[in-house]
Write a protein that binds this DNA or RNA. Structure first.
Lengths: 234, 234
DNA sequence: ATATTTTGAATGAATATTCAGCAAGTATGT
DNA sequence: ACATACTTGCTGAATATTCATTCAAAATAT
């Protein structure tokens, strides 16, 4: 750990280039103390994601989060009561962002199921969602989810509603095109593949977002040949 | 933690029904004290998997492992020098078992690519490999893998050789049947889907091994319709 | 002046690691 | 046979470390 950061005089410099949240936040924020509270929370959540990505769940400490945010040691317990609550808030924020993202992507896609499926897959590999940093944080939570009900509930990022949506799309395509699988089964294969690709991306290995997206497309082309081609929905 | 276990007189009873490794081991080994070094190591590795599955990576303590094995607190540092080394040995053991399993499944399948692919998929959902307990342990390691090179290297359970094998099978089927995707891309979709199904199985949600296997089959039927049907290779 | 936010040292709990000693077995000498 | 030293596996109390949490005091904003 960088002990220089414990010197308050050195922190100013760090704050300037701290994390992305702060930069975004300062655009919106005035000097109002109420706004400031929410801003700090976001800043700390971003620092938590950084730490999870850099050190993994087990090695993430409040000291590291505070240092990452360019703030002092006691800060987390002031804004979130406990480490546990910070982590839950972090997961919640990621889950909200994810759900929000696929939902709006779907709305933009229009009414045709093939277009919607295409958009849903594309959303998963969008720049904003699919960063190494966030994937690593997701994976850190997945690793702990089985033994923590709170995480498990939130960790269905691709949660019940997402799964229902995929099933509905598979069912719609089946009705249109006469494929002979059951919608639930194919939806499970499909969404599992997307999750698996995330996992692989996180692991590194020179796999890029573009290549992963391509693999996902190749698979849905195979699954729905009458509706989807490599270059888009038919 | 069960404090009763700290009483040595209570341990005998625990030892009798401790973990699977010991049971297997007693077939080969003598009794109690004479348990060989290798046997103890296996016993502790099994207890580690139990603890990972029950409490997750972050909450797994040496005390819990020792208790699970029905042995005393200092035992792990005696047989493996450190917690870290115990965990690496555990991951190594799981990786070896996994690699061994798919490799022999492939040998039994005979020379035809379609048969081999079918066998490879079946191997992933085999009773012996695909238990809640082991999946949970895998996932615990995945969560830490990004930040630990040692884990990362071993965590490719579906490692380089596995991936090469899947690519080779996709290429062989393509050559036989004239599908028009690239083998590497389809292999990536396929193996990611298998991993994703593991992840889902681990998360619970009432998904069974059989249902997951079914979903995998449905997908390879869609990918290789000329070679594979729901009830087996053509 | 008051309220809010932040700091950083102190505290205490959890837990990995160490190690001196015990016990069970094994080899050697008588 | 028996005694003696030696080896190996194991124990559990003591130690050291790491880290979340607390809080009195300082800084900052209203």
């Amino acid at each position: 750990m960088n002990e220089a950061l414990r010197n308050p005089k050195m922190r100013m410099a760090v704050k300037m280039r701290a994390n992305a949240a702060q930069k975004e936040a300062t655009d919106i924020e005035k000097k109002g103390r109420k706004a400031s509270k929410e801003t700090r929370r976001l800043q700390l959540i971003e620092a938590t994601i950084d730490s999870l990505a850099k050190r993994g769940y087990a090695e993430t400490t409040l000291a590291d989060v505070a240092d990452g945010a360019g703030l002092s040691r006691g800060i987390v317990n002031f804004h979130f009561e406990s480490k546990e609550k910070l982590l839950v808030a972090t997961l919640q924020a990621m889950a909200d962002e994810y759900a929000n993202h696929w939902y709006t992507a779907l709305e933009k896609a229009g009414p045709r199921p093939a277009d919607q499926l295409w958009a849903l897959v594309a959303a998963d590999f969008d720049r904003r969602i699919c960063t190494k940093r966030k994937l690593a944080a997701w994976c850190a939570f997945w690793g702990e989810a089985k033994s923590r009900p709170t995480y498990q509930a939130l960790c269905g990022a691709r949660d019940v509603k997402y799964q229902e949506m995929v099933i509905a799309l598979c069912a719609a395509l089946k009705a249109e095109g006469g494929y002979d699988y059951t919608a639930e089964t194919m939806a499970l294969s499909l969404s599992s593949m997307l999750e698996g690709l995330w996992l692989r991306l996180m692991m590194g290995d020179g796999l890029t977002r573009e290549k992963a997206h391509e693999a996902a497309i190749e698979a849905i082309v195979a699954m729905f040949p009458k509706h989807i081609a490599r270059n888009g929905p038919k």
